[in-house]
Design a protein around this nucleic acid. Sequence first.
DNA 1: AATGAATGAGAGTTCATTCAT
DNA 2: GATGAATGAACTCTCATTCAT
Lengths: 212, 212, 212, 212
Amino acid sequence: MPTDTWWNLSDEKRERITHAAMVEFGNRGFSAGSLNVIAREAGIAKGSLFQYFDDKLDMFASICDATSAVIREATLTDVDAEHNPFFDTLRTIVHNWLEFFESHPVERGIAFAAGNEVDPEAGAAVRSVTSQRFAQALRPLAKGAEARGELRPGVDTDHVVAMVVLLLRHLDKAPYYPHIDPVLGLDQKEPGDVERIALELVDALQRAYGAP
Amino acid sequence: MPTDTWWNLSDEKRERITHAAMVEFGNRGFSAGSLNVIAREAGIAKGSLFQYFDDKLDMFASICDATSAVIREATLTDVDAEHNPFFDTLRTIVHNWLEFFESHPVERGIAFAAGNEVDPEAGAAVRSVTSQRFAQALRPLAKGAEARGELRPGVDTDHVVAMVVLLLRHLDKAPYYPHIDPVLGLDQKEPGDVERIALELVDALQRAYGAP
Amino acid sequence: MPTDTWWNLSDEKRERITHAAMVEFGNRGFSAGSLNVIAREAGIAKGSLFQYFDDKLDMFASICDATSAVIREATLTDVDAEHNPFFDTLRTIVHNWLEFFESHPVERGIAFAAGNEVDPEAGAAVRSVTSQRFAQALRPLAKGAEARGELRPGVDTDHVVAMVVLLLRHLDKAPYYPHIDPVLGLDQKEPGDVERIALELVDALQRAYGAP
Amino acid sequence: MPTDTWWNLSDEKRERITHAAMVEFGNRGFSAGSLNVIAREAGIAKGSLFQYFDDKLDMFASICDATSAVIREATLTDVDAEHNPFFDTLRTIVHNWLEFFESHPVERGIAFAAGNEVDPEAGAAVRSVTSQRFAQALRPLAKGAEARGELRPGVDTDHVVAMVVLLLRHLDKAPYYPHIDPVLGLDQKEPGDVERIALELVDALQRAYGAP
DNA sequence: AATGAATGAGAGTTCATTCAT
DNA sequence: GATGAATGAACTCTCATTCAT
């Protein structure tokens, strides 16, 4: 966890550091990401980083945590889930999700780095926070759908949520990194085509889990 | 590509080195994996590694390539796709897949490392080979299903394949690495439960894409 | 260029490192010179060298640059070129030159290493600075001689300077390294004899380029 | 010295190896030159090199020795020194010299590598042979000139030879490697201009040492 | 609170040389 | 005589972290 000193920094400085860290970790991942580079790009002394964070992993985890909060805020709130059918809400979320990552390359990098970190300790530390966050936001939506009879009887809502998370995770990576998706080739498609395909996948989810 | 020297090695030595590399890369990924460790564990001189591979990436890519070939062989062949309904074949594949990774922890690590490498060059190099391999094996199956009228009319077979790949990729990671799947919690389930859940997900795919 | 850190070091430390580097590069040249040795001899950690210089070449170039400045200062200034005939000034310079290198074995090594580096990049980087320095110092002297009518009419002053540079370069190597000069055998002569011969060569230059 | 095995090789093979070595040493010098590269380029096994030469230095020295013999043959013979005035012979030699190095880039590289090697052992070993060779070829010419009364009385013929060697050594480097000659800028001149300048320098030598 | 110099372990890679085949 | 696999030391360079100022 960041130190008190971190939170006492001016907003400008904190954001400068955060941005430098996001870019570096986003480009090179946790293991290969360099604190030297982050300090240089942020224009602060290398030693200062250790005034703000316990160590490199603490820094990475904090950055990922904050970023995933931003992502959830931008994509999963304001969907008015209570007054819309579940699968329509899902379409809105997918739309938001694609739009957000299309216009936020830095966050895109962090999402990639956090989701793909191989180092066991770092990967677990990061994912324990970020993945939970999306699951927790989506679960009530599925529960609501079930309560409103929008789901096929007997379906486990967790399955629905799991598939949605799987789909979203795919959609923030596949269009931007080569060879992630060798079948649909999302990395060579225009944003509009990506969205069309994504919505068709939601259609499929609806056929699979929606009430007949 | 490995050198001639590599292929001239005795089988025993080549497998010793391969195993050491798979363990190290599987545990720590490409970027953090150490050639020092590999050489030490394999019981050879560090310099010898460079008699076999051009560089670290060449080594990693070769290992991943060979491993993915093994995986495909073990899971996607002998499914007798022509004489069985597509979604039944799919169930067989999922079964094979889970069984293979349950009993092959080393290959499991490499699959994880290959799929999750963050370094752009390394990630692309590895995935361009491994991902294609599974996609190419699955595509004809979906085409056959379409030809036999087992798919819902109008469905794009590529979508089916993409979802299957997504599902398989999930199933070789989620049961073994924490926090990959925060919804279903596959990492805390017995193999039998994992298979049951996985097969239910195939059911869902069938509802989504199978002929009504 | 050296970093700020380099210039912030204490004089003692900076000179300790500089000396170690001069000795090592002087003895073994740039390519074969070892940063390990330099760090060890200077009594600092290997990694610290990279706090001071971008890389090995930067270190070598900086050392050579500084050394050539010292050499020029010690040999080409205070010759009162304006109040003395050009070829007398030349004799003074040759005298200074021989005296300097006779009493500065470390600088002698660097001059040798800088002038003889074979690596294209390193050689060019170093010589582009050091050679220019002496040429620029000598050119005005020749121009002055021409203006005062001390040169043979029609002589290109650049030719004079070129021959002087050639001669000086020879005089800082030939007496100290075997087989450089197989004709005059300067490496087996006493300093006094070397100077006598060198001054005779200046006499020859005067016959060649001086006013009749 | 090369082994008997070396001389028993077929001419074709021996020349293939020699050429590969000349290119490599010429491009990267002795220290940085790689036997790996030489063996690969020559198309022979790395270990075979040690059947032909004691070690790397022996190989380098042998190559340089042979090359300097070729150079002498091409430039210093057939000048008919006995029937021509000395300084005219010198002009012929300079012409041959420039022509040879202009048309023999590989030999040019070796001449550079041999003349500039910094490693004390290697440099001495190489230069002890090559430099002597030119000096010995030139000395009788100067002696003849002296005997014929073409030299200024009292001139030490060794001085003349030394200056000629100095000049020739300059002329095989300066036009091809940057920053060797910062005054005349020979590396940016056309061959014709280089020759013109070189002959003017011979004129100067004649004024300096020729009979009045 | 901020600095930035210092560290030493470790990284990947290259190398000349040896020697059993 | 030729091979080419094996070696281990050496290379330059990067790194996260510490700590005195």
